[in-house]
Each structure stands twice: as C-alpha cells, then as structure tokens.
Amino acid sequence: MSYDFLETVLFALLTIGIVGGAVGVVFLNRITGAALLMAFTFLCNAGMFVLLGAETIAAFQVLIYVGAITVLILYGVMFTPQQHRPYALFFQKQTPWAALFVAPIAIFVALFAFSFRDSAHPTPRGGDLVPLATSVFKDFAFPFEVASVLLLAAMIGAIVLVKRDEDE
C-alpha cells in the first residue's frame, strides 16, 4: 500500500489554508484578526514550499514573513489611532473598481497556473543550500543587487522622514 495520496491531502489542506486565510484578510472587520490570518497564510505558504522540496525557502518564509513582517504590521496597527471605524466599509466602497482591475489579471494568472498541470514531480533534497546560493549569487546576481539598493534607498528614506531635529 502506498501513501502517495497523503501529499495530495496535505496540498488540499494547505490550499484551503492559503485561500481561506487570504479571503479572511480581506473580509474581516477586525484589523488585528486580519494581520493574524495573514501570518497564517504565510505559514501555509511555507508548508507549500516544504511540499515542493524547498525547505530552505520555507524556513526563510517563516523567519521573515511570520517572525518579522507580521509583527511590524501588528506594531503599525497598534500605533494607529482607531476610532471604532467599521473597517469593512473601506473595502466595500472600492469593490467595483477592485473587481474591474483584478479580473483581467486574474484571467492571466489562472491561465498561467493551469498550464503547469503536468509538471515534473518535485524531489525533496532536505534543504540543500548550494543550488539556492548559486542561483541567487550567480544567475540572479544583478536583480539581487538591484533589490538590495532599492531596500537601502527605502530605509534611508524612512529614516529621513521620521527623523526629528536634535533640539525640537
């Protein structure tokens, strides 16, 4: 008896987690709940990476998105004054516009996703770092450097924006 069906079951559970979490982020009224559901979606995404045999990327996903980005978002939410606003309204007003812009992109994404139906089976390698490192620092060295310059610029911009003068 084989247990290959387990992978399909896990895939289904993770998909439900990702889609359900994402829908919850958009439709939930409570913004902290939305942030937590986003963390849950990121976690499910990490599980998907594990299924694909990319444990290293899964670990980075959890380290950066769950451990740092979600916390920063929660931090921002807690510091923003909330005057008991019905947050759902914010999204509902823009629903027609959002649908108009999302629909054409969604068609392309769906077409793209279904073109991968018969792809090769992934082979887990137990988190081998060498291929990842080669692709980042050799094949994609230029985009990598551009991304780091962009991040540096963003960081300096943020510092300039929030820096106060020394003696008020």
Binding site: T56, A59, V62, L63, V66, G67, A68, L74, D128, L129
Partner: peptide, 18 residues
C-alpha cells in the same frame, strides 16, 4: 538531522515574538 537545522532553530525562535 536537518540540513538546515540552525536556520530552523532561528526561524522557530523568531515566531515567539508573534
């Protein structure tokens, strides 16, 4: 015995913050 054991540990350590 994970190949990325150390990364795994730091990852779990960062989840505590949440």
């Amino acid at each position: 015995d994970l190949n990325i054991g150390l990364l795994y540990l730091t990852t779990l350590g960062s989840m505590t913050v949440l």
